[in-house]
Design a binder for these strands. Structure first.
Lengths: 229, 229
DNA sequence: GAGTGGTCTAGACCACGTT
DNA sequence: ACGTGGTCTAGACCACTCT
């Protein structure tokens, strides 16, 4: 076979990263490129479309294709289940349910998830350990009006995240990262000092426009989330 | 026109999110789907390929296509230049250079970026303000052996990140998020209390296998990074 | 109006991995 | 060996948007 779309992608990327095609440079149109590379226009189109998805180039009908002035830098983080994250590091995973109760949603949670005033929730507090050491503290709230079966699930053996992913696999998620400070409670569970800075993830989940769950995950001091792009 | 690949994507997604096709369900092959939808196989292929890229389905030759057991959850964060991030919030951006010096790379930095012992660096300390309030503290190190022209750049008017993106637009980046604690210095610059938890981003950048720069960005207390997926 | 990318088609051959 | 996805082709028509 002749030229593949991957060859074209690689060639264009080389031209860009080497500084041959500077930002704002206009790239030849698809027909010309197809002739240059000796392939069909569809092949060029696939290459260029993927480069545009990657945020490297910008395309507009009639105006043509150009190298982005400022590359659209975006990082992708995989959001694994805690067990998988720990086991991926060849560490032994252990889980423990700290507490579990059915209560009316507190005001701050109702505001977050837009719940009605009488909404009942299952409030779970859990710990996740890696090689016996505290790894993550999980403060979990599940909306019982949408998922009443959560009341009967056994969360002493399986973490709520795992249960939820198995029960409602495809949902909409809003995730946010921030820094928090260890209070008395957190410091005891995570075996750290009061006042330690903790990397914190908050996640709200919806299924078909209805709020399912909110979780605040506090990681042990020193935890970092890393990726490349 | 008949059926588009977007129609097919939407239809398949509906089948999956509605629970019609549960995780691990095997999806009909492309030829059958093309017949079902009354379109060419290439159209089905495009739809399925994108769903696979999104982490919703899993494809293997001969074995066929199936709904992922655990959806491959991944979040995409756009990594804007601070100025753009602040101006996107309709806030007024202000930048200030705090200090600038040329020094030999300290040991920890040499280890991070794999620099030689005599590597010279430009060490910059900068502040970014939103509507006059401290927004981000930037601790920046630029490798002068790769970018000697940084010594002559005027960092009193333009932040180093902006200058770097304009100078070396396409590079490889490792980014990591964590939580840190405000020390005396940080608390003064960010107008916060000593001991406040700060959301922190560290970024190392390479261009053609050579380390260009390292930056530690400390955000004012309460800052969060949010996205949906 | 005209040029560009966006998409679809019908067919073909290939690469891979399961059986 | 064979069934599946992966890719390319040559052509066509359409949708957008710049001038």
């Amino acid at each position: 076979m002749g030229v593949t779309f991957k060859d074209i992608k690689a060639d264009i990327m080389t031209k860009i990263t080497s500084g041959d095609w500077l930002p704002d440079t206009i790239i030849p149109n698809e027909i010309d490129l197809a002739e240059t590379y000796g392939c069909a226009r569809a092949t060029v189109n696939r290459a260029m479309r993927e480069l545009a998805d990657d945020g490297v180039i910008e395309r507009r009908r009639k105006a043509g294709t150009r190298v982005r002035k400022k590359p659209l830098r975006q990082a992708r983080f995989s959001i694994p289940i805690v067990r998988d994250e720990i086991e991926a590091q060849q560490a032994e995973y252990r889980y423990a349910l700290v507490s579990s109760e059915v209560i009316k949603a507190p005001t701050w949670l109702r505001a977050r998830l837009k719940l009605t005033e009488d909404a009942k929730t299952l409030h779970l507090v859990c710990m996740h350990y890696a090689n016996g050491a505290p790894f993550q503290f999980e403060d979990r709230w599940i909306n019982l009006s949408v998922l009443p079966q959560a009341k009967d699930a056994d969360f002493t053996v399986q973490g709520p995240h795992e249960w939820l992913v198995a029960t409602v696999p495809y949902s909409d998620v809003e995730i946010s990262f921030s820094a928090a400070i260890a209070d008395q409670d957190l410091s005891e569970h995570l075996s750290c000092a009061i006042g330690d800075p903790l990397f914190t993830v908050e996640r709200s989940t919806w299924w078909q426009e209805r709020a399912i769950t909110f979780a605040r995950l506090s990681f042990c001091p020193g935890h970092r989330m890393t990726t490349r792009y």
